[in-house]
C-alpha cells in the first residue's frame, strides 16, 4: 500500500504542479503548495482508497491548503492573494507554455480572474474533471460549478477578444 501510494503520488506530480500553478500564479509557489499537499496527503493516506481517483482527492487537499494559506495571509495582513497576483508580473508563469500570443494572453488573463473562476477553470477544462467531480472537490452544488464555469469561460474569452482587438490580432 505504501509503495502504491508513493508511486501513484509521484506519477501525479506533473498534474499537481499544473493545478497548483493555475491556483497560485507562480511555479515556486506551486511547488511549495504541492509539497505541502503531499505531506498532508501522507498523514491522511488511510482515507484514500487504492483504485479510486487520487487526482480528485489531491485536488481537494490542495484546495483546502490553498484556502488555509490565503486565510493565514489575510490574518497576518499579508496580501498574497489574487489581487497581488494580478499586478505582479511573473515571467515564470508562462515558462513552458507554447509561444503563441493567444496562449500567453490566456495565461495572463487567468491571473487576473477571481479565485472562484480560476479554480473551476483549473478543475474542469484543464484537469478534465466532470462538473460533479469538481463540485465534490470544492464542496459546492454542481449547479454552482456550472454557473461559475460558464461565467469564467465567457469572461476569459471576452477579455481575450478585447486584448486581441488592442493588439491587432484575432483569436480563433
Amino acid at each position: 500500500m505504501t509503495m502504491d501510494f508513493k508511486t501513484e503520488l509521484t506519477a501525479l506530480l506533473p498534474r499537481l504542479r499544473r493545478f497548483a500553478l493555475v491556483r497560485t500564479g507562480s511555479l515556486d509557489a506551486a511547488d511549495d503548495l504541492v509539497q505541502a499537499a503531499c505531506e498532508r496527503a501522507w498523514v491522511a493516506r488511510d482515507t484514500w482508497k487504492p483504485g479510486t481517483r487520487m487526482d480528485s482527492w489531491m485536488f481537494t487537499i490542495m484546495q483546502n491548503l490553498h484556502i488555509d494559506e490565503i486565510r493565514t495571509a489575510a490574518t497576518h495582513g499579508i496580501r498574497e492573494s489574487a489581487e497581488t497576483l494580478e499586478v505582479v508580473p511573473d515571467q515564470r508563469w508562462s515558462q513552458g507554455m507554447e509561444a503563441g500570443l493567444a496562449l500567453e494572453q490566456v495565461a495572463r488573463i487567468m491571473k487576473q480572474l477571481p479565485e472562484s473562476m480560476r479554480v473551476v477553470l483549473a478543475l474542469v477544462p484543464i484537469e478534465g474533471l466532470t462538473y460533479q467531480e469538481a463540485a465534490d472537490v470544492l464542496g459546492v452544488p454542481v449547479g454552482t460549478v456550472m454557473s461559475r464555469l460558464a461565467r469564467a469561460r465567457s469572461e476569459l474569452m471576452r477579455r481575450l477578444q478585447a486584448g486581441a482587438g488592442e493588439a491587432g490580432w484575432v483569436a480563433t
Partner: peptide, 25 residues
C-alpha cells in the same frame, strides 16, 4: 475556451518535476 486553456497549460506537464518534490514524496 476549453481548447485554449488546455493548450496554454498543457506544456507544464512536460516540464521536469523538480528533484526536491520527488525526493519529498
Amino acid at each position: 475556451s476549453g481548447r485554449l486553456l488546455r493548450e496554454a497549460f498543457g506544456p507544464v506537464l512536460r516540464q521536469p518535476v523538480p528533484q526536491r518534490l520527488c525526493d519529498a514524496v
